[in-house]
Simulated scan of single mutants.
Amino acid sequence: MIVMLLSAVDMSAARKRTRSVSSVKQEQKANAQAIKKTSQQLDENAKATSRTLNALNTLGAEIRQQNDSIASINHQIDSIDSAMKHINDSIVTLDGKLVALRDSYARSVTRIKNSQQGSMDKLAFIFSAESFTQAYRRFRYLGEFSKWRKRRNDEIKEVQARLEKQRDELTRLQGVKSGMLTRMNVARNDLEKKQNETSALVAKLKKEGASLKK
Rank of each mutant, 00 (worst) to 15 (best):
M1V: 12
I2P: 01
V3R: 02
M4F: 08
L5T: 13
L5K: 07
L6Y: 05
A13Q: 14
A14D: 05
R17N: 14
T18H: 08
S22T: 05
A34D: 15
A34I: 13
A34H: 09
K36P: 02
T38V: 10
T38C: 02
Q40D: 15
Q40P: 03
Q41P: 01
K47D: 14
A48Y: 00
A48P: 01
T49I: 04
T49Q: 04
L53D: 09
N54Q: 13
T58E: 10
T58Y: 04
L59G: 06
G60Q: 13
E62L: 05
I63Y: 05
I63L: 08
Q65N: 09
N67Y: 05
N67Q: 08
S69L: 10
I73T: 11
I77M: 04
I77A: 02
D78T: 13
D81E: 07
A83T: 04
M84C: 04
H86A: 15
N88F: 11
D89E: 12
S90P: 01
I91N: 03
L94N: 07
L94W: 02
D95W: 02
V99E: 08
D103I: 07
D103H: 08
D103P: 01
D103Y: 06
V109T: 06
K113P: 03
K113E: 15
Q117I: 15
Q117C: 14
G118L: 00
S119P: 03
M120R: 08
M120E: 13
I126D: 00
I126A: 00
F127P: 03
S131E: 04
F132D: 12
F132R: 06
F132W: 09
E144R: 08
S146W: 07
K150W: 03
R151Q: 12
N153V: 06
D154N: 09
L163K: 10
E164N: 12
E164V: 14
R167K: 15
L170Y: 12
K177G: 02
G179S: 15
L181C: 02
L181Q: 14
N185L: 12
N185G: 08
V186T: 10
N189D: 14
E192C: 07
K194F: 06
Q195C: 06
Q195S: 13
N196A: 13
L201N: 15
L201A: 12
A203L: 06
L205K: 00
K206V: 04
S211E: 14
S211N: 07
